[in-house]
Design a protein around this nucleic acid. Structure first.
Length: 493
DNA sequence: AAAAAAC
């Protein structure tokens, strides 16, 4: 079975071959033919299954005939995160090399004007995260009634993120005659309801999970006696030193922990950068690019990077924190051992993590994960009375130029009693955050703590609560004097 | 116990 058997055109087959693919994956085999016929597709599949190409290829085929009008895109792909949207765009570029398709990527955190200019010129493919798409729409810069194909990617994740009302709204703005390709890793009731409502006799395709746990990934844990993050960071360094790490992702549960761990690794001379949703988009993009190009060895990440991102050939995944939901564990370690390669997943487990570890073991269907013996390390470095490691840090920390001295006391574990180690990460970012190495974007320059507070209070006020989204639906914003009547009218379906 | 996403 080859791509040629799926009914794709020579132009497209050439691009696929040029990209180095020969055999379609199961979901591609099953989804592409009905999609080419114009049928709706409901794909139940995770990332790593070749899902993206299963919708980009038939879309390119379909869009190769016809031309886009200004502000009326012909197709729309919705993705939950900016990175994922950008990845879909790359996919279109890769497979669309022989087609003259125009494309716009509407995501937050980047300039509005460039996106708008593209919309004005007319695009065949619009790829977006829901927030920015609706923003454009409400400014009257975008019409969705020319949509021929609409794709919803990672729908269950959209549900987790509270995007479902937005998705429904967007569905209602597109013509009923559209073709819908809908993908979700799981089918919770809310998602089922959406597909019942908006898909027309879809071809349902379910592919099994990509080989995750047992097959290609070696999983281990390290028991850490203290839940002091400082000790965990020391263990992490020790662990990295013992492993033959080509490149690795280090997952933390909190954004603040991501910052601290990244800074700490940098100070110890590791090539590491943080990625999470509070960092400037330019920095996120740059970091991922570096990681993909092997210019970066360690990506310290929140769960923004746990799902969906296509980062090939990661040799190691480190779970600095035990994920709260066992699903997240599966997604995190799924970043390694991809495409049949070998991978290692290592996790730091403190006594407080027992419950979550149990649920992870249950989920992956294992009685236990083999434990690495770190007793010698802990004997040499007991958490409570370990001498301040600052000295050890300083001799490697030539990069961290400023103000280290004035806050030395803040970083001493002895200052804190185990009881109030409740928010271990909380006071430490303030300590380390300003030593930001080679970053020059303005977000980074602000004192971090304040930045976080501003953002979270903004979110609380503005965030997607029902009232504000209703307001959003009713108000027509930014259209000036010329508001076409059909735009102020609700679209009946 | 979190994270993600719009100015």
């Amino acid at each position: 079975m080859s791509f040629a058997d799926l009914g794709l055109s020579p132009k497209l087959l050439e691009a696929i071959a040029a990209a180095g693919y020969e055999t379609p994956t199961p979901i591609q085999k099953e989804a592409i033919p009905p999609a080419l016929e114009g049928k709706d597709v409901l794909g139940i599949a995770q990332t790593g299954t070749g899902k993206t190409a299963s919708f980009t290829l038939p879309m390119i085929e379909r869009l190769s005939k016809g031309r886009a009008k200004a502000r009326m895109p012909r197709s729309l792909v919705l993705a939950p995160t900016r990175e994922l949207a950008a990845q879909v765009a790359e996919n279109f570029e890769k497979y669309g090399v022989n087609h003259k398709l125009t494309m716009a990527l509407l995501i937050g955190g980047v300039s509005f004007g460039d996106q708008d200019a593209k919309l004005t010129r007319g695009v065949d493919v619009l790829i977006a995260t829901p927030g920015r798409l609706i923003d454009h729409f409400e400014r009257g810069r975008l019409l969705l009634n020319g949509i021929e194909v609409m794709v919803v990617d990672e729908a269950d994740r959209m549900l987790d993120m509270g995007f479902i009302p937005d998705i429904e709204k967007i569905f209602k703005l597109t013509p009923m005659t559209r073709q819908t390709l809908f993908f979700s890793a799981t089918m919770p009731p809310e998602i089922q309801r959406i597909t019942d409502q908006f898909l027309h006799q879809p071809v349902r395709i379910e592919v099994s999970k990509p080989a995750t746990t047992a097959d290609t990934i070696t999983q281990n844990i390290v028991r850490v006696p203290s839940k002091d993050d400082k000790q965990k960071r020391a263990v992490l360094r020790e662990l990295i030193g013992k492993e033959d790490v080509k490149n690795g992702i280090i997952f933390c549960n909190r954004k603040s922990t991501v910052d601290v761990v990244a800074k700490s690794l940098q100070k110890h001379g590791f090539n590491a950068r943080p990625i999470h949703g509070d960092l400037a988009q330019s920095f996120r993009t740059e970091t991922l690019d570096k990681f993909r190009n092997d210019d970066l060895q360690f990506l310290v990440a929140s769960d923004v990077a746990a799902r969906g991102l296509d980062i090939p050939a990661v040799s190691h995944v480190f779970n600095f924190d035990v994920p709260i939901h066992s699903d997240d564990y599966v997604h995190r370690i799924g970043r390694t051992g991809r495409a049949g390669r070998k991978g290692a997943a290592l996790m730091l487990v403190t006594p407080a993590d027992g419950k979550h570890l149990d649920s992870i073991l249950k989920t992956i269907g294992a009685k236990e994960i083999e434990e690495l013996d770190f007793s010698e390390f802990f004997e040499a470095n007991p958490a409570s009375e370990r001498p301040d490691r600052k000295g050890g840090r300083d001799d490697k920390g030539g990069k961290s130029r400023s103000r280290r001295g004035e806050r030395s006391s803040g970083d001493q574990p002895s200052r804190r009693k185990p009881k109030d180690a409740k928010e271990p990460a909380n006071d430490q970012p303030a300590v380390e955050a300003q030593v930001e190495p080679e970053q020059d974007n303005d977000n980074q320059a602000e004192p971090k703590k304040q930045r976080d507070e501003t953002r979270s209070s903004k979110r609380r006020r503005g965030g997607g609560d029902a009232r504000s989204s209703r307001r959003r639906e009713e108000a027509v914003v930014g259209l000036g004097d010329h508001v076409p009547a059909f735009l102020t009218r609700k679209v009946a379906r």
